[in-house]
């Protein structure tokens, strides 16, 4: 039997979400149309299904730039895409929370990244500032404590990344995601909060108990339903159930919960560097992002820096360097 190069799948063309742009094969002709999520200067992000109909994936596509020479364009796209993917895999290897690389095609210019649930830290901060303004100075202390706890996690996450020799290059609050714990991962929340000397909440304990009673991890059960043979039709049942329950939880709490893992995203400008200068600039950029939200966010950033300083050996030196960077700005002066 010989295998001729596969013809493009013959299914009817999908409705284009972006009329002027065609995605590379096989996504261009997929009956499962990608939905456009966001567009930057270099790349476009789509949400697609990947490997199973019920698994989501963020497709980061770098379209060719028509104003560049084709050869140069290919080389730049490839180099940038691979630099980003390699940094992500390195982070994953070392246990830093970033989206996993699921697939990549550097000739076609796309990389498939693990889908991260939840919202950005920027959204959380905006919501917090909004509430703060409404409630005035006498805001409840509980929320305050939760916010500081969140800042602690941000500081640690950035610290871990710097510790393994990665600098983000564009560390803004929009590139920090707060991923709520999965039902099956409730125990991690408990572990984390015990370590943080904050008493575990009753609800998280109950979740753990329910999880243990159920016997098996929801994750594997869910995947199994997703991968049952002959599954041409999507099996969205467990997913919708999940989100619904998540929403219910939020409703009862009155405001979105601040529990969750900090996941760093968008490593398009990341470098593998362990220079104090690059690390300090990362922190400086993050500081500006906090300041841009609201002056009231400043004490929060102080907490980020405090926890960053304790997160790894060498962090103190970076904080010293940060003071220098603050004086002159992000760019190093070339005078004198």
């Amino acid at each position: 039997m010989t295998y001729a190069p596969a013809p493009a799948p013959t299914a009817e063309p999908a409705p284009q979400t972006h009329p002027t742009l065609t995605l590379p094969a096989p996504f261009a002709t997929s009956p499962d149309p990608p939905s456009l999520l966001t567009q930057g200067a270099e790349a476009i992000i789509y949400k697609i299904s990947f490997l199973t109909p019920s698994t989501s994936c963020a497709l980061k596509y770098r379209p060719p730039k028509p104003y560049r020479h084709p050869t140069l364009d290919k080389r730049l796209t490839k180099a940038r895409l691979l630099a980003e993917a390699r940094v992500l895999v390195k982070c994953r290897r070392e246990g830093v929370r970033v989206p996993a690389v699921l697939a990549a095609d550097w000739e076609a210019g796309w990389v498939g990244l693990e889908w991260v649930e939840g919202g950005t830290v920027r959204g959380v901060l905006d919501g917090w500032v909004h509430r703060e303004e409404k409630e005035g100075a006498e805001g409840e202390g509980g929320k305050e404590k939760e916010m500081l706890d969140l800042m602690m996690r941000v500081g640690r996450a950035v610290g871990r990344m710097h510790e393994i020799g990665v600098c983000h290059g564009d560390l803004t609050t929009s590139n920090l995601m707060l991923r709520p714990f999965k039902k099956g991962k409730a125990k991690r929340e408990e572990k984390d909060s015990t370590r943080d000397t904050v008493a575990p909440t009753q609800s998280s304990r109950e979740a753990v108990r329910a999880q243990l009673a159920a016997g098996k991890g929801t994750v594997s059960a869910e995947r199994e339903t997703a991968m049952t043979a002959e599954s041409t039709a999507p099996a969205p049942a467990p997913v919708t159930q999940d989100t619904q329950e998540g929403r219910e939880k939020e409703d009862t709490a009155g405001s979105p919960t601040l529990a969750g893992d900090i996941v760093l995203i968008d490593f398009g400008l990341a470098t593998q560097s362990s220079h104090d200068e690059d690390r300090a600039v990362d922190l400086y950029v993050l500081e500006r992002a906090f300041a841009a939200t609201h002056p009231a966010a400043e004490p929060l950033f102080r907490e980020v820096l405090r926890c960053y300083g304790e997160s790894y050996k060498g962090a103190r030196v970076v904080l010293k360097r940060l003071e220098e960077v603050r004086m002159r700005g992000r760019k190093r002066s070339m005078l004198g």
């Binding site: 993917a85 992500l88 996993a100 990389v111």
Partner: peptide, 17 residues
């Protein structure tokens, strides 16, 4: 299960690159 999922993520990245 957690350990396997974590391992899987890294392996997928290695295969992709």
């Amino acid at each position: 299960v957690d350990g396997r999922l974590e391992m899987e993520s890294v392996i997928l990245g290695i295969m992709a690159l």
